[in-house]
């Protein structure tokens, strides 16, 4: 972050599938040594973007320079300097942890010490176990270990913690932060806001194939210009209320029948809300207040929650 040396430059990347444009001219830069998050709901185009950067899909337009190499012209060189963990990859179930690491290491000209890699990824006990017998968290750590066998500069992680239990997620977070300490650049996609907040130095928010925001997590929240959120529902459905007129409200969001008011003055907004509710004889339920988060940034920018349903 200090040096701000650029390691990835994405230039007007476009990918279309028939009539559908999955990625619509995305541009951004990633700095050396940072953890860069690509955020967005399912179908936002983050996985497609990532897959173009690692050479699994050919861009229809634009290109990217990864580690100094053009992904459309020098893909083999790009692959030597990047490590990839794909969403829900399965591996050869009948091989052991050690065997598959040796196998993947053999694909590259350069490799790290496999015993110490196993140690770092907390897989020492499972060294000789078959992949079939690993838990979800262990499999995900193995997938990351496979991305590291050739000592890459940049590591791409596609939804590394999806489907893991909270404990396994935290273990993985520690590993990612550890990698950052070693000086690796990490690009990850996620739809967990808390994860992005903990891990990422900068976050790019994608929606429907476009990049709609790029900043540090705290700056993104700050840009919301409201530090608190009030959430509630009306017991009897009545949406003919002008919530914007409530005092102190900067923005109004809603998701199905849940309303969210963003405000800089929590007390003023709350009193005003309750006053209005009793005036109009509306009953409030599930009322809660909290600090605004990245989730709110997202909801505000896209009108959608990150994980719907």
């Amino acid at each position: 972050m200090d040096s701000q040396e650029e390691i990835i430059r994405v230039i007007n990347l476009v990918k279309t599938y028939g009539d559908f444009t999955a990625v619509k001219g995305v541009e951004f830069q990633v700095h050396k040594g940072e953890v860069f998050g690509l955020l967005g709901p399912n179908g936002a185009g983050k996985t497609t973007t990532l897959e173009m950067l690692v050479g699994l899909r050919k861009p229809d337009q634009g290109t990217a320079i990864v580690g100094g190499f053009d992904i459309t012209k020098e893909l083999k060189k790009v692959k030597e300097v990047i490590g990839v963990q794909l969403q829900s990859t399965s591996l050869f179930e009948l091989l052991t942890v050690e065997e598959i690491l040796h196998l993947y290491a053999s694909f590259y000209p350069k490799q790290v010490s496999i015993p110490s890699l196993i140690e770092e990824m907390l897989l020492a006990e499972k060294r000789k176990s078959r992949i079939k017998s690993l838990s979800g968290g262990q499999k995900q750590r193995l997938a990351i270990a496979l991305a590291l066998v050739h000592d890459p500069w940049i590591i791409f992680l596609d939804e590394p913690t999806t489907g893991l239990d909270p404990q396994a997620r935290r273990t993985l977070w520690d590993i990612i932060l550890q990698l950052k300490k070693q000086g690796k650049t990490i690009v990850l996609t996620t739809h967990y806001m808390d994860e992005a907040h903990v891990l990422c130095d900068r976050i790019a928010i994608m929606n429907q194939g476009e990049l709609i925001a790029l900043d540090t997590p705290s700056q993104l929240v700050k840009n919301l210009q409201s530090d608190s959120a009030v959430e509630f529902r009306f017991q009897n459905e009545s949406s003919e209320v002008e919530l914007h007129e409530i005092e102190g409200v900067t923005k109004v969001g809603n998701q199905k029948d849940v309303f969210v008011l963003y405000t800089d003055d929590l007390q003023l907004t709350l009193t005003s809300l309750i006053h209005m509710a009793s005036d109009k004889q509306l009953k409030l339920t599930d009322l809660q207040t909290r600090t605004a988060t990245l989730e709110d940034v997202f909801l505000h920018m896209t009108g959608r929650r990150l994980r719907e349903g």
């Binding site: 690692v54 692959k79 990839v84 794909l86 399965s90 050869f92």
Partner: peptide
Amino acid sequence: ERGILRRMQGTTL
């Protein structure tokens, strides 16, 4: 189908 080949495609193999 299981993405095993895709993962290998991501390497220099």
